[in-house]
Nucleic acid binder design. Sequence first.
DNA 1: CGCAATTAAATTGCACCCAACTGTTTTTGC
DNA 2: GCAAAAACAGTTGGGTGCAATTTAATTGCG
Lengths: 164, 164
Amino acid sequence: MSARSHSATSGSASSPSGPAGSGFCLDDLLCFAVYSAEHAFTRAYRPLLKALDVTYPQYLILVLLWRKDGQSVKALGEQLHLDSGTLTPLLKRLEVAGIVRRARNPADERVVNIFLTDAGRALEANAQEVLRAMGSAIGLCEADAVELREKMIALRDRLNAAVE
Amino acid sequence: MSARSHSATSGSASSPSGPAGSGFCLDDLLCFAVYSAEHAFTRAYRPLLKALDVTYPQYLILVLLWRKDGQSVKALGEQLHLDSGTLTPLLKRLEVAGIVRRARNPADERVVNIFLTDAGRALEANAQEVLRAMGSAIGLCEADAVELREKMIALRDRLNAAVE
DNA sequence: CGCAATTAAATTGCACCCAACTGTTTTTGC
DNA sequence: GCAAAAACAGTTGGGTGCAATTTAATTGCG
């Protein structure tokens, strides 16, 4: 008898707006709430990141590198939950843009380490402005944002665990 | 003096795991929590939806059509926050799969209405099983799931409002 | 009525994301 | 030592998502 909650059954009284059909409402689904919030974040970031000339996933890579430079493709992938099929072309684009440098690890030729260029490091200053703008767009006090973030991380980890 | 919270400043004491660098930690960012939770949902749905032979965005379209058949491309797009550039090829794939039928609206030839086929309607029964499995993977009681969902929807709407 | 503005889909081009596979390099098990 | 297994990045192909443009149909205003 494990957890059995739905948040998304076709439940009797949960859809005040439903005009027709037998199905459930999209806004009843937690998965859709997360799906559409994610798109809203991407949309909100887009104009801000245009100033840095990077996309949102590229920005997440930069966040990791600003914190710790020279990480391997695998290490970056584990933190973002992305594999080389996504990362290799993305990192190549960052390299072409002059933001990172890719270098085989001499001690282990299987590994490629990613290093920020001077230009890549310089972007961090601009990113502070992005953070500030997003903080105000989110429109939550610090405590509420932290609580929501922790719940999302916990949800993510449970979902990942359920897929093994 | 509008809202000014970040949930994501490089804040003093928020990163217990931080080994290096000047930047902030990825898990400190609410946007990343949502980003990775969304991917976790997609990953969790993938094996379940494989039984129906549809992808996750295709499933969301079906949820809308099960509720109300014959909606226009525009109507579907407004509910999913997607435009015709995404929907047209997706709906064509559903049509090729024999799940929906696309038909120009005789009353307004600009509009294309999407109708479920018998096969498309038949999938709804299987979807109940998907819902049940996701409910247990989410691992939240109904009340917590509803609360989290409402907070995500509110966050999404604030973000969308911030982009105009 | 007639034509400009608007609306709906479709198209094009680019970036992301994943599954499946390939080619090296390193580690392991004997 | 050396062959099998594992690890890592890269490649390919298909689906998603969005900006910008195009085409066709409708509306609205003079």
